[in-house]
Design a protein around this nucleic acid. Structure first.
Lengths: 217, 217
DNA sequence: CCGGGGTTCCCTCTCGCGGGGGAGGGGGTC
DNA sequence: GACCCCCTCCCCCGCGAGAGGGAACCCCGG
């Protein structure tokens, strides 16, 4: 049950680095590489990877269009992680909207990149594994099979706060709703923003929508 | 082609007031009234109104649940306008999420209430008539048939700004994106918040999502 | 028993956001 | 021409938000 990964990045150095840390794990393997978005659909069809690590900024066809194209055309598509150099990259939201299952910064520590690959391969969303958290809440803390804990996952309380943030509540209002002090809410909000790599509550709410943590309509 | 309106409010006085101003118009007519959410589905089935003016806070079954129920069960459902007493009512977002096509404050001036009814009856969303604005942009300024202009509609520039707000941009970043000064952006943002009756940019973005001005996924 | 994560609460500090004004120019209608 | 709307830009001001510390409690697991 090794997880098959396809690397997509226009810089050979990046691909080599990612391939090195991935191949060092025995439950992960790199089945192919692509240097451009245009090559991706063919490679996906041919290699049937479980996870695609896709750079956002590429010549010819960028990661967003490539993501959209794969998810539109390939039946049983792979999970796609969008990789970007800068946090708060302007394409991050577009990428998630295009159907990506998470995003990573290139400077993220290798162990976390590996954990991220395993998580999305197992069907979790990188930022908001709502299903997992629900499972853990309903079926007791014995939830996920070993080692799947990732430090960026939101806690239950943080989920409560984010849900209220996504209803337009201010910190003071959230404090009233949850019967805690405003300072506590500020702490939670700060942790949420850090985990989501969001700059402010607006970006956090956007991510909540784009990753279906919150569902409109 | 008179527009049939169903009034739903637990206070007879409110219903009477609304009925008075609506019946004074010859293109609008009140086909029925209901004092409780539980009565609504039956009345909708029986009277087939074009528009439902629905109070949010009602005993037994509130406006949100009633809205959801109607839209779930009635084929070719009416357009629903949620009416509330206080701005920034905590139920507003829930109502829009339940599928309401807009919301109004009870203290809104009568002419605007009438215009709102006409707008939603013609298929526009009250806050974000994106379709109309697109039509106007594509088919020239001859867009909507007479008199449909409502002062709460967003201008094209405001739409640009809101779209960028919904991408998580700060005012300064929006200014760069649009090649204008930050002060100009602040002006637009202020106007947007006023028109949307939103308290801050987060609420504005939420409304943008809930009314499908922005579409996730 | 001790460690770690989660929740709660406190402090200070900075800064962007939003409210309140005003003002000028362009383009449209009446 | 007068009017109105939109877009642009400016001022001041108050406040909430977020960053960056710290600290206490509980519960669970090693």
């Amino acid at each position: 049950m090794t997880i098959k990964v396809l690397l997509v990045d226009d810089e050979r150095l990046i691909r080599a680095g990612l391939a090195a840390i991935i191949e060092a794990e025995d439950d992960l393997t790199v089945v192919g590489e692509a240097a451009d978005g245009t090559e991706v659909p063919g490679e996906v069809h041919r290699l049937r990877p479980d996870v695609v690590l896709m750079d956002v900024r590429m010549p010819r066809l960028d990661g967003i269009q490539a993501t959209r194209h794969i998810l539109d055309t390939v039946p049983g598509p792979p999970r796609i992680i969008v990789v970007t150099t800068f946090e708060n990259d302007e394409y991050v939201y577009d990428a998630l909207k295009a159907g990506a299952h998470g995003f990573l910064l290139k400077r993220t520590r290798p162990e976390e990149i590996l954990q991220a690959i395993r998580m999305v391969a197992h069907g979790d969303s990188l930022l908001f594994p709502a299903a997992i958290r629900e499972l853990a809440a309903h079926h007791g803390p014995s939830g996920g099979r070993g080692g799947a804990r990732w430090h960026e996952r939101l806690t239950e309380r943080e989920g409560d706060v984010l849900r209220l943030m996504a209803k337009g509540r201010s910190n003071a209002e959230i404090a009233q709703d949850l019967f805690v002090s405003p300072q506590t809410v500020k702490t939670h909000v700060g942790n949420i923003l850090a985990k989501l790599q969001a700059r402010d509550r607006t970006q956090a709410v956007i991510l909540a929508y784009e990753t279906s943590f919150i569902t409109p309509g």
